[in-house]
Nucleic acid binder design. Structure first.
Length: 317
DNA sequence: AAGACGAAAGTGGTTGA
DNA sequence: TCAACAACTTTCGTCTT
């Protein structure tokens, strides 16, 4: 599985707006097949091309790592082809189910009862697991998240179950928190509000489950970077990739000057987008930005005042 | 009339004794 | 466990376009 994002990985994403990229099969891609976004980003560290909106990994090994990688890849591909469908974490028994038929004739009543008790427990945990996976899938669909993130979420749930962390807790809370974590880990964070909207539980419970899982699975989720929100917010505001790049540039300068310390990343992202849009002659009102980002106009104002003053950006309306 | 501005009070989460 | 604290929100009156 791809495991994401440590601090040092920040900043090595390179924007390739409007540029064409090649998948391993040699096709040209310009937009994300999952969500249609044109914000495709190359991560040279992991040698991936992925969608900055939803996190879908479109191509791996896009960088020429030497002449032999294709052969390597092909060999693997053909080897896999012989084993059947790729194993997935999203099927409750990892897709390796076997059909077993029992002959129960001749068993005594007692033994049967015992067996039923045992399988009852197995059935209920199994049942809730299946429910959890379907919930992850439902919410991931609503958020338009790609398979790789759903896989990661399912895997996290598996780990949580193995450690017996689910018992006595609401599946809804856990699954929502897990999805929230998975998005963060893949560098396409969702806001707590966005996640809450498609969840069946409230924000309080999601946060509780979130903190609980981080502690118990000792996951390290570095605080979300404002940069990670920019492409998605921009496309929600119908702003071009140029503006997105400009906003990211502003954030980078702000980060160097340590203007982002202690501030909420979403507020920073919102302000940077607000500024970038005005500078590009594509004005968006504070209300519009506020609506898609979920931070108030007041916060956008405060951040954008700070940024424009400290970075000597003249924002003339 | 809509957008931007900023003061002031309120809220929820973190930190440190 | 409690209080102090910073960031953010809510609310609202005022100014600008």
């Amino acid at each position: 599985m791809v495991t994401p994002e440590s601090d040092e990985e920040k900043g090595k994403y390179k924007k390739e707006e409007g540029d064409e990229d090649e998948t391993a099969e040699g096709e040209k891609v310009k937009e994300c097949p999952e969500c249609g976004s044109k914000s495709l980003v190359r991560d040279y560290g992991k040698a991936e091309l992925f969608c900055a909106d939803c996190g879908l990994v479109i191509a791996e090994n896009i960088v020429d790592l030497g002449p032999e990688w294709r052969a390597f890849d092909f060999e693997q591909a053909s080897r896999r082809a012989r084993v059947g469908a790729p194993m997935t974490y999203r099927i409750h028994d990892k897709g390796l189910s076997t059909l077993v038929t029992w002959g129960l004739q001749g068993q005594g009543q007692y033994k049967l009862k015992k067996w039923q008790q045992r399988t009852h427990i197995a059935n209920t945990t199994e049942r809730s697991f299946i429910f959890a996976l379907s919930e992850i899938d439902r919410m991931a669909s609503a958020l338009r998240l790609p398979m790789n993130i759903r896989e990661a979420a399912s895997m996290l749930y598996r780990r949580a179950m193995k450690k017996r962390l689910i018992r006595g807790r609401s599946i809804e809370g856990i699954t929502t928190a897990i999805l929230y974590i998975a998005c963060r880990q893949y560098g396409v964070p969702r806001t707590l509000e966005e996640v809450r909207e498609i969840s069946r539980v409230g924000q309080k419970e999601i946060s509780r489950a979130y903190r609980f899982l981080l502690r118990e699975l000792d996951l390290k989720v570095s605080p979300a970077s404002p940069v990670d929100f920019v492409p998605r917010f921009c496309s929600l505001l119908d702003l071009s990739g140029e503006i997105s790049s400009k906003a990211i540039e502003i954030i980078k300068r702000a980060t160097e000057k340590e203007l982002t310390n202690g501030r909420g990343p979403i507020g920073i992202a919102a302000a940077a987008i607000y500024i970038a849009a005005i500078l590009s002659g594509e004005h968006r009102t504070q209300k519009e930005v506020s609506d898609v980002t979920g931070v108030t106009e007041v916060t956008i104002r405060n951040r954008y005042k700070e940024l424009s003053e400290q970075l000597d950006i003249d924002v003339l309306l």
